[in-house]
Amino acid sequence: MKSHQTAQTMKPATAAKKLGVYLEATPAEFQEGVVSRAELNALQADPPQWLQDLRAGGPHPRPVVAAKLGVSIAGLGRGGITEPLTTEQIEALKRDMPEWLEKERATQAEVRKEAARIKKRNTERAARTDQSPPSP
């Protein structure tokens, strides 16, 4: 008996998310088809011009915008950013540094600092547990 292995496929939205691009800005043939794992790997290894252009200039999806601005996705919403932004728009926000962006960056820095503190504490606890003598 032969085992038939079917190609793993994904919806265009999933592939766009994995590629870090805004689906609505991709070519129609990408949006309308399905993407196999092999095709996704090929796009990542040797991106076509349209993918290079999207990654460079946008429009970028919210997770990418948030990362480029150094804030959370929720912080984007609090700042009134609900639509995808181009690289040019992101750079303009960085230059202008509106009050909401400054505040959200500070909040994100505090969140990262707290996460690092908790990770360090947990690592120290685990090390102490490993070193303690076995219970009788």
Results as ranks from 00 to 15, higher is better:
residue 33 G to N: 12
residue 15 A to F: 12
residue 105 R to P: 04
residue 35 V to K: 12
residue 3 S to M: 09
residue 109 A to I: 08
residue 28 A to H: 05
residue 23 L to T: 05
residue 106 A to N: 09
residue 7 A to S: 12
residue 39 E to S: 05
residue 61 P to S: 12
residue 45 A to L: 10
residue 30 F to S: 01
residue 80 G to V: 00
residue 53 D to K: 14
residue 94 K to L: 15
residue 39 E to A: 11
residue 19 L to S: 08
residue 127 A to Y: 01
residue 43 L to C: 01
residue 104 E to W: 06
residue 96 D to R: 15
residue 86 T to V: 07
residue 121 R to P: 00
residue 85 L to T: 10
residue 47 P to L: 08
residue 104 E to H: 07
residue 136 P to A: 09
residue 129 T to K: 15
residue 132 S to K: 11
residue 132 S to E: 10
residue 48 P to D: 04
residue 117 R to C: 02
residue 136 P to T: 07
residue 9 T to D: 01
residue 7 A to M: 09
residue 47 P to T: 03
residue 33 G to E: 03
residue 32 E to Y: 08
residue 73 I to Q: 15
residue 117 R to Q: 13
residue 60 H to Q: 12
residue 55 R to Y: 02
residue 10 M to P: 00
residue 18 K to E: 11
residue 107 T to A: 09
residue 82 T to M: 05
residue 118 I to M: 07
residue 93 L to R: 05
residue 16 A to T: 05
residue 30 F to C: 00
residue 86 T to D: 00
residue 135 S to M: 12
residue 88 E to D: 14
residue 96 D to Y: 06
residue 68 K to R: 15
residue 121 R to Q: 13
residue 105 R to D: 08
residue 33 G to S: 14
residue 17 K to F: 07
residue 113 K to G: 00
residue 35 V to Q: 10
residue 84 P to W: 11
residue 80 G to M: 01
residue 51 L to F: 01
residue 102 E to V: 13
residue 97 M to S: 13
residue 119 K to A: 15
residue 5 Q to G: 02
residue 72 S to M: 07
residue 70 G to W: 06
residue 136 P to N: 06
residue 74 A to D: 14
residue 59 P to T: 07
residue 131 Q to A: 15
